[in-house]
Design a protein around this nucleic acid. Structure first.
Lengths: 340, 340
DNA sequence: TTGTAAGCGTTATCAC
DNA sequence: GTGATAACGCTTACAA
């Protein structure tokens, strides 16, 4: 049976109040008292019951990180940084996987504040506008959106400039002389803003270079897994004329595309150049290594946690938008030869 | 202000007891009563406060999954399955990252039961015997070890037969005619059993084939990241005679090794064959695709959760060992040509 | 079948 | 600076 505050109080012959003061680091406790209590704490190997504390204070010290699939490298690398930064701020992280299940997302967004399980939610990509509206009206849970960009002043956002990132990636492909530039990652679901913005950036880059875009060059991808990129790339390669470059909306899609091009017996980047977005570790070691747009997840994690911590302290704080920097990383999949 | 049980009771003109019965699905509630209460619940949009319930029942419905680094693909893929299976069992999952920090592991193992934050712990690899001993004496938190194999009847284990898996991987390399077989992944830390068992399996396979092993062929790796595999492979390739095959203790190490061999201008598998362990998705799409030992993480996740659920219900249940099946997956990195 | 009330382990409000 | 005591929201004996 674990020791409670009362046990410590009795053991040290003081009141529970005093023990609580010592445990929570209250200032005005005499040195003698503190020592006496600390001794009892050590002797009984006491740890505060976090659940009881939560019931009393309303704070759990836990943040929820909601992602579609934790095993998609971008999300797991983001999770790594989020967990680390959260620890610095005194938070633990509970990871919720929605698995693209809208009902689950809804339940999380609308019911989370009443379950009292966490102090705030970090919500990554796949949220629709409609869900946010509902959430806003039914919950007072602090929320920070990661990766969404369309800012309307009502939710905190931390994200890169998606349109610009896509535009920069496409510009890079143009700068190395490609003209038949395909894209993989447009989403059937209209309400997700991220893919829309990336498509807009892709089209903007083509337009400014005077390249007329062909609709068949824009391949959708239901999810952002390697298999989706593989399938989409195969479809693209079957076209005639086939593309001489592919811009993928995520690195994972790009890894699938890389393999599809390889299977088709074509050379990268000679026949087809490929660029992604995310800068996952996998792309630094693949053969060829993957050109990409780097996102600075530590930056994103830091600002997201800082924002949510601020919002927990002051629920009425004004919504803020943080735009994370991005930069194009040129690697072998767009420049250089496959044969070393 | 969220509605409480008392609010619902007042609204429905019944006692809190009755509302509680309805909420928790108690059998003996009259139909009329249930409807009346449900109406009030819906009208007030009531959700039970899980923290209060926990304080009362001692159950949080949360499991901790402890891993060294969540962004190592094996762990994130394991986490995906664990979260999904846990949901089926009515548990949520909190992920804790130890970052190879022993103090953090210790604190988690010894302090977890008193914080009352979760009902049980799924502990993946990097635990030492000594830590377990301490944990055992100071905590009554249900614990299931994932990936450890040395079974002493005191802790629940779910793991593959590490020795056999390593032996099978090495045998495969021998079966394709390789004789200078190196290994990457031995750990400087003696107390971790997994790498020790893999080394034992590697050596057993060499011995049974009558191959004298050279100590320089056994490369350590502090962690199991791509960069570690890359560095270790470079060291191996600098040796003379250089190995004609490399067995990596994890797929992530293998991905790094793959790239190192590529950078050295050697061909896979012609000059050097490579095999890993884990069967991460990355290895199915890499070029060349990675031969590996498949672990069946859904199986592992399922049995781990089932075990811990059983142990939560009956703390005195006998410790059990579940050996997960494994199988060698032959892909391009050991058989076939790099040029399609 | 339903109501009443105690108590889970904290923190916070009041006195002293 | 420290001590008693009420509350946080829920579940569950025990009564009715």
């Amino acid at each position: 049976m674990p020791a409670t505050l009362r046990d410590v109080a009795e053991h040290a012959q003081v009141s529970m109040r005093t023990v609580s003061n010592v445990v929570s680091g209250y200032e005005h406790v005499s040195e003698r008292m503190r020592e006496r209590v600390q001794l009892a704490i050590d002797e009984l190997d006491y740890r505060p019951n976090l659940v009881a504390r939560t019931l009393r204070t309303g704070r759990t010290g836990v943040l929820a990180l909601v992602v579609p699939e934790i095993d998609v490298p971008y999300f797991s690398e983001l999770a790594r940084d989020v967990i680390n930064v959260a620890a610095e701020f005194g938070f633990r992280v509970m990871i919720d996987q929605t698995g693209h299940d809208h009902e689950r997302e809804r339940e999380l967004l609308t019911g989370a504040d009443r379950t009292m399980l966490f102090d705030g939610i970090l919500f990554s990509p796949l949220v629709t506008k409609a869900e946010l509206e509902e959430m806003n009206s039914r919950s007072s849970m602090p929320l920070v959106l990661l990766g969404e960009h369309e800012f309307d002043g009502r939710y905190d956002h931390v994200a890169i400039d998606n349109l610009r990132a896509a535009q920069d990636a496409t510009r890079h492909l143009i700068s190395i002389g490609r003209t038949r530039i395909a894209a993989i990652g447009a989403q059937p679901m209209e309400s997700y803003t991220t893919p829309q913005q990336r498509t807009a950036g892709y089209e903007a880059a083509l337009a400014e270079a005077g390249i007329t875009r062909s609709p068949s060059m824009l391949q959708p991808a239901a999810h952002y897994r390697r298999a989706d990129g593989y399938a989409a790339a195969r479809t693209l390669l079957a076209q005639s004329p086939r593309p001489d470059a592919i811009f993928c909306y995520s690195d994972t899609l790009a890894m699938g595309a890389l393999r599809a091009v390889f299977d088709a017996g074509l050379r990268i980047p000679d026949d087809i150049a490929i660029i992604g977005i995310d800068d996952i570790e996998e792309g630094r070691f693949s053969s060829p290594s993957l050109s990409t747009v780097s996102l600075d997840t530590p930056f994103i994690a830091h600002h997201a946690i800082a924002r949510i911590a601020a919002r927990i302290d002051d629920p009425d704080a004004e919504a803020e938008e943080v735009v994370a920097p991005h930069s194009v990383l040129v690697r072998e999949s767009t420049v250089g030869s496959t044969e070393p």
